[in-house]
């Protein structure tokens, strides 16, 4: 099972790569596998502000639309322009399939996210 231990995880299947007061956010390999065949990603606007747990993006698979929640509170500083090819979410969920970057308003929230081991326990 592909769950890098360099990342933190939300119960709703998003990952965050935390670097000081910024975080890169995407969905997990497990999530992309459950969604399958991603055909569109509706990304947030740069400058949008989210509290942890708020809907920040929407992913459409062939079958249905799914909400993606911001794992942490903060302001969007960048979105992934490469997702004009939405299949990157399926092929490289933890890499080129990243969705947006946040400037964190409360970096201490990261402590509430799961470790790789805890997330593996959740999805097993």
């Amino acid at each position: 099972m592909n769950v890098p231990d360099t990342l933190k995880y939300a119960e709703s299947h998003e990952w965050a790569l935390i670097d000081g007061d910024t975080a890169t956010v995407g969905i997990t390999d497990h999530a992309q596998s459950e969604l399958s065949d991603v055909v569109h990603v509706e990304l947030p606007k740069v400058g949008a502000t989210f509290t942890a747990g708020a809907v920040a993006a929407t992913v459409d698979s062939v079958k249905a639309a799914s909400d993606i929640y911001s794992p942490l509170s903060g302001t969007v500083t960048e979105v992934n322009p490469a997702l004009s090819d939405p299949s990157l979410v399926n092929t490289d969920a933890f890499g080129q399939g990243w969705m947006f970057k946040l400037k964190l308003s409360d970096p201490s929230e990261a402590a509430k996210l799961k470790s790789a081991a805890e997330y593996i326990a959740q999805i097993s």
Binding site: V39, H40, E42, T58, D60, V62, A64, A65, S84
Partner: peptide, 9 residues
């Protein structure tokens, strides 16, 4: 659909 965007439901 002619433009970009999420598929309709």
């Amino acid at each position: 659909v002619t433009g970009k965007g999420a598929p309709p439901r």
